[in-house]
């Protein structure tokens, strides 16, 4: 397969960049040699493996096989966000649910409205972007929520001590957490095309697609990512009251 030759030779030239990184790290005595070596090799192996799976998947025409990469994607993303959330008990299944919902809503809109054809070639990479971003949102949401729990404990106790419902007290920190998750995607929406050209679009143009078509898909993806982020944050907002408060409207220690 000549395609394979190209797939291997292009990143092989890219190794030059990593040699540059290594040289800089060595020159500045950054003590990062191991990190750089591991990162370089893992990027190569993981993406090659993903490419091999995708190639095979795009040819296997049974849609049931799609559940495999989607499931793996959701599982790994939920796990990663859960670690960022300090491995809080009960957070994992909430994150998994939020990511699944974000993915379902995004795919439902894409394919329900026939914006893009429902094929493995579209489902898998678009899911990757939606879920990948939702993962960051979930991690950020819990990071901010638990920080709010620590920093605003006095205000939370004030609400509870007067007989407020735990949801009233929760709003005090959870709104801020949702806000924090939305700001990065909104900032990106504001600066895209001026500060940087997004990866997907760059990839499409380099691979020979028309810039206008690439931009059209890029805009779609970016809106979808913002939508997925909002669904993720809203789901976690609704589900996470018991992580901070007991059913007796007490602050969880």
């Amino acid at each position: 397969m000549p395609e394979w030759k190209e797939a291997l030779s292009v990143p092989a030239f890219g190794l030059g960049f990593m040699l540059l990184v290594g040289a800089i790290a060595y020159g500045l005595r950054l003590d990062l040699t191991r990190e750089i070596a591991v990162g370089t090799i893992r990027t190569f192996l993981q993406l090659m493996a993903a490419g091999a799976v995708l190639s095979w998947l795009f040819r296997a025409r049974s849609p049931a096989w799609l559940l495999l990469p989607l499931g793996a994607m959701l599982g790994v993303a939920a796990w990663t966000a859960w670690k960022k959330a300090g491995r809080r008990p009960g957070a994992f299944f909430r994150i998994a649910l939020a990511l699944t919902l974000a993915e379902a809503v995004a795919m439902g809109l894409f394919f329900g409205l026939r914006i893009v054809p429902a094929r493995p070639e579209t489902i898998v990479p678009m899911s990757g972007m939606i879920v990948g971003n939702a993962m960051i949102v979930a991690g950020l949401f819990y990071d901010r929520l638990l920080a709010g729990r620590r920093e605003r404990e006095e205000v939370l106790i004030l609400w509870l001590s007067l007989g407020a419902d735990r949801r009233q007290a929760y709003r005090e920190i959870a709104q801020e957490a949702v806000r924090a998750t939305m700001l990065p995607s909104l900032d990106t929406l504001k600066t895209v095309g001026i500060v940087q050209l997004p990866g997907m679009m760059t990839g499409m143009i380099v691979a020979g697609a028309s810039p206008l078509l690439a931009i059209g898909y890029q805009i779609l993806i970016m809106y979808a990512i913002a939508g997925g982020a909002a669904v993720t944050a809203a789901t976690l907002y609704v589900l996470s009251v018991p992580l901070v408060f007991t059913s007796a409207h007490q602050l969880r220690r």
Binding site: E154, V155, I157, L158, W159, L160, S161, L162, G163, A164, D165, E172, A248, H249, Q250
Partner: peptide, 19 residues
């Protein structure tokens, strides 16, 4: 019900704070 209880038994916490 804890909310009703705290309506009759009100705590003023140690460090005064504001919403």
């Amino acid at each position: 019900d804890p909310r009703e209880l705290r309506r009759s038994v009100v705590l003023v916490p140690q460090r005064a704070t504001a919403v």
